[in-house]
Amino acid sequence: MYEPIRSKSVHSTGEPTDYPHRSREEELDIQLAGHLAALLAVTDELLARTPEPSLERAAHRLSERVARLRGGARPVRAAGADVTDPDPARVEALHRQAHTLAGRALVVAASRADTGAAILAAERMDAHADALETTPAALTAAG
């Protein structure tokens, strides 16, 4: 009634396959580099809206960490555009997004036992949480 299966299952173990496999560590490296690169992009946008030395230092540290995780390949950085009228609501949204991305990076860094990346992510979470505490006051005063 049914034709028998003539080929081995792609899920079988122990036999070589035609596609490459990555280890858990490699997958975590890729995830961490992705989260940190996304955090760097948000940091670059925040820098364009609110140029601060602390954000510049953070962007540099993020860039260095991503390059290490990618085997020396530098991440693409956003060009520093001058934003003459920074929208406080957009700045607040960027801080929220950066806080979330830093939290994701922290989880992955902890999973791969990368203390340096975990410290960097935790510092960025704290910095964006502090910025969020002060942002609503600025919104109230402006509006």
Score class of each variant (00 low, 15 high):
I5V: 15
I5G: 06
S7C: 11
S7K: 14
S7L: 14
S7A: 13
S7G: 10
K8M: 15
H11D: 14
S12L: 07
T13M: 13
G14F: 00
P16R: 03
T17M: 10
H21T: 12
R22T: 12
S23A: 04
R24G: 06
E27P: 01
E27R: 13
L28G: 02
I30L: 05
I30A: 10
Q31S: 08
Q31L: 14
Q31C: 02
L32N: 01
A33M: 00
A33L: 00
A33Q: 04
G34V: 01
G34P: 01
H35F: 01
L36I: 01
L36F: 00
A37Y: 01
A37Q: 12
A38M: 05
A38W: 00
L39E: 03
A41H: 08
A41K: 08
V42W: 01
D44A: 01
D44M: 00
E45P: 04
E45I: 09
A48F: 05
R49I: 05
T50I: 05
T50G: 00
T50V: 15
T50K: 13
E52Q: 12
P53M: 00
S54R: 13
S54I: 03
L55Q: 04
L55M: 08
E56M: 07
R57F: 05
R57S: 12
R57D: 13
A59K: 03
A59S: 06
H60N: 11
H60S: 07
H60Q: 06
R61L: 09
R65D: 04
V66Y: 01
A67G: 02
L69A: 02
R70H: 08
G71S: 02
G71M: 06
G72T: 04
G72Q: 08
A73M: 13
A73H: 10
A73G: 05
R74I: 05
R74W: 09
V76Y: 08
V76K: 13
R77Y: 07
A78H: 09
A79P: 06
A79D: 13
G80H: 12
D82E: 12
D82K: 13
V83P: 02
V83L: 06
V83R: 01
T84Q: 13
D85L: 13
D85G: 07
P86M: 07
D87K: 08
P88I: 02
P88M: 11
A89H: 14
A89I: 08
V91G: 00
V91R: 04
L94C: 10
L94K: 05
H95A: 01
H95N: 05
Q97F: 08
L101C: 04
A102S: 07
A102E: 02
R104N: 14
A105W: 07
A105I: 08
L106D: 11
L106M: 10
V107M: 11
V107I: 14
V108A: 03
V108L: 06
S111G: 11
R112Q: 13
D114Y: 01
D114T: 02
T115C: 05
T115Y: 08
G116E: 15
A118H: 11
A118F: 11
I119N: 14
I119T: 15
L120G: 06
A121V: 12
A122L: 10
